[in-house]
């Protein structure tokens, strides 16, 4: 148990140390010290306005995650089952995905307006494709012998889908979901930073304009903690299914 904790604790300590050194090296105002940041974080966490902004982000993030997970898996299954469709879709998806999506944000804004839906759409733009690709490839790479075994054991196609295909692709789908979830958060935050009057992304930009660096870093740290927690949760889920 001690061994499990020792590694991460050491990494965190080294990070804090590097941060402090960097803080001492650069001008004081542009990079606040870890201590100043943690003090600011304490202030923020007691501020009701912060929680209002966080709720805005959380709402957009949650909707984007649910929609891109459901949509990505459904699309991936569909493309994986229809081999030709998958072969056509894969290069399109990969190229689409490598586009710098932020340049398309004005278009998203024009379509969805300045409200929360634009941020949700932008989150989905980031999170949907990785999940689709991972799910599709998992199905395409499914060992044919699994389906043949299911057939000779007399399983119906529904039983095969539920009892064989689903558990077989699950590890890759969870990997895709881990990627998708963090990218959804990225999309939502970028959306908030560029055109919004609320949300944590807006808070960061607003603080930056005021030169309030402790707030910028404190919010960034909180978001990082949330992102790491989400990733850790999915990782734990993945591990819990295996010995």
């Amino acid at each position: 148990m001690m061994r499990h904790i020792l590694g991460p604790v050491l990494v965190i300590l080294c990070g804090l140390l590097a941060w402090e050194v960097l803080h001492l090296l650069v001008a004081n105002s542009s990079l606040p010290s870890p201590l100043a940041t943690f003090v600011e974080m304490g202030v923020l966490l007691r501020d009701p306005d912060f929680w209002k902004q966080a709720a805005q982000t959380a709402q957009a993030f949650a909707v984007a995650v649910v929609l891109s997970t459901v949509g990505g898996i459904a699309l991936g299954v569909l493309l994986g089952m229809k081999r030709l469709a998958g072969q056509v879709a894969e290069p399109i998806l990969v190229n689409l995905y490598s586009l710098p999506k932020v340049t398309l944000y004005p278009v998203v804004l024009l379509i969805f307006g300045l409200g929360i839906s634009a941020r949700i759409a932008f989150g989905i733009m980031h999170g949907l494709i990785p999940l689709t690709l991972f799910t599709m490839n998992a199905i395409l790479q499914l060992k044919p012998v699994y389906r043949r075994s299911a057939a000779v054991m007399g399983l119906t196609s529904w039983q095969t889908a539920l009892r064989v295909v689903l558990p077989a692709i699950l590890p890759q789908v969870i990997t895709g979901a881990r990627l998708g979830v963090s990218l959804c958060l990225l999309g939502v935050l970028i959306g908030e930073m560029f055109a919004a009057r609320n949300g944590l992304g807006y808070m960061v930009t607003h603080a930056m304009e005021r030169g309030d660096m402790p707030t910028v870093l404190a919010v960034a740290l909180i978001i990082a903690a949330v992102a790491l927690a989400a990733n850790g949760l999915l990782l734990a889920l993945d591990r819990s299914r295996q010995p």
């Binding site: 043949r148 064989v164 558990p167």
Partner: peptide
């Protein structure tokens, strides 16, 4: 019914 098959590839389910 009544026919069983063992394949060459490993068909055990890892999950």
């Amino acid at each position: 019914a009544g026919v069983g098959v063992v394949f060459q590839e490993d068909a055990s389910f890892p999950w």
